[in-house]
């Protein structure tokens, strides 16, 4: 888009000012060659009443002569700083990724402490434990366990297991454990930690 030779007529500058009153850039929503071309064709600083032309100048990253340059320096140096920070961040991320790719991938595991509750004080807890331990799936390792007194002669089985995060979920465990419905009333997760 062109506005003729903008040096030639103050009138044309006014046209440009009017045009920019509703826009930030000559074309679209980001600075483009069109802005550079139009502002290149300006000579010297537009007069102060052409507010929209002035407003749009900082948005176009093009040095525009001495006086104005000083005025816009704070904006520009901020941008440079941002660019610098961004570049630094990218560089560090790249180094991190490179370092990371050399490390052997560690399989994410969690430690679970499960409470398995029977129906009453007469449930055979040995049998209950044997059933729980009979559950086997990839990425599941049963650990130590103990019986804890609840009250009124009821005991619960507290059992530790180690799971691979990607392979075993607590829902799967709960489903399989509570499937022993003659023995198990419910299961709760007492502790859930990263290993």
């Amino acid at each position: 888009m062109g506005f003729g030779d903008l040096r030639s007529a103050r009138l044309r500058l006014k046209v440009l000012n009017g045009f920019l009153s509703e826009r930030s850039y000559i074309e679209g929503y980001v600075p483009s060659q069109a802005d550079v071309a139009v502002f290149d064709s300006l000579s010297g600083a537009p007069s102060a009443d052409l507010v929209h032309v002035l407003r749009c100048l900082p948005g176009v990253k093009k040095p525009l002569g001495g006086g104005r340059r000083r005025r816009h320096r704070p904006v520009r140096s901020d941008e440079e700083e941002d660019e610098e920070a961004e570049r630094l961040k990218e560089e560090r991320l790249a180094q991190y990724a490179a370092k990371k790719s050399k490390k052997p991938t560690i399989i994410a595991k969690s430690s679970l402490l499960l409470d398995v509750k029977p129906w009453d004080d007469e449930t055979d807890m040995k049998q209950l434990e044997a059933l729980v331990r009979s559950i086997s799936m990839e990425g599941l390792l049963w650990g130590q366990s103990k019986l804890l007194p609840v009250g009124y002669g009821i005991q619960k089985l507290q059992i530790n297991c180690v799971i691979e995060d990607d392979k075993v979920g607590t829902d799967m465990l709960e489903e399989q454990i509570t499937a022993f419905e003659d023995f198990v009333q419910s299961m709760d997760v007492a502790a859930f930690n990263k290993i």
Partner: peptide, 29 residues
């Protein structure tokens, strides 16, 4: 812990002067 051998260390506990604290080391699970 990885072998699941001891229940006690599957609970991460320690003491400060005023508190008895249990740590939950958030897994990515």
């Amino acid at each position: 812990r990885e072998r699941g051998m001891t229940i006690d260390i599957s609970l991460l506990k320690f003491n400060t002067q005023r508190y008895s604290m249990t740590i939950i080391d958030a897994p990515g699970h």
